[in-house]
Write a protein that binds this DNA or RNA. Structure first.
Length: 159
DNA sequence: GCCAACGTTGGC
DNA sequence: GCCAACGTTGGC
């Protein structure tokens, strides 16, 4: 059982949409490191759902891996924005997992708040220049974020 | 809209 | 194998 963080631009695919649809294919990842993380995922792994490239960016909810990695067929589809001419059925190159809606966080956690929270100082997400769309989350970071979400909005971060 | 950081490409 | 140029990500 491992923890992850999935980034998505809400204009492209939002957590609200996942809530409506129940599950989705996490297709379109075109970064080798992110792909390799997906290949190591197991059914039942949990992930934070992060809204990027929006104002404000942050973690909005939780999703769950429901299918392990398999070939990302959008890479083979010339009509897809994720088409990759190097990919073939025999060598798909890119893979994806399926994820399901789990639950929203008790409150939205903006990146600014996560950055200011000392227990998350080493978290990949808050490192300068990081842009991996799929990344691992340490168990301690996972628990710290769950706890943070339970703090009422008005309460200042004690750190 | 700007631009820093990053990954990839391709010439050499 | 090096590294400059380029395209993309994503915070601000």
């Amino acid at each position: 059982m491992q923890y992850w963080l999935f980034k998505s631009e809400p204009d492209s695919y939002s957590f609200q949409r996942l809530a409506l649809e129940g599950r989705t294919e996490w297709s379109g990842v075109r970064n080798y490191q992110a792909r390799n993380y997906m290949k190591s995922m197991q059914v039942g792994d949990l992930g934070f759902f992060y809204h990027s490239n929006t104002s404000p960016p942050g973690i909005i909810g939780i999703c769950r891996v429901i299918r392990t990695a398999y070939p990302d067929f959008t890479a083979l589809d010339p009509q897809s924005p994720y088409f990759d001419p190097r990919a073939s059925a025999a060598k798909p190159i890119w893979e994806m997992v399926d994820v399901a809606f789990e639950r929203p966080l008790e409150r939205f956690l903006p990146l600014e708040l996560l950055r200011a929270h000392q227990p998350l100082a080493a978290m990949a997400l808050v490192q300068k220049g990081q842009r991996l769309s799929v990344q691992p989350v340490a168990a301690k970071e996972w628990q710290a974020i769950l706890a943070l979400a339970l703090q009422p909005d008005a309460v200042a971060d004690p750190e």
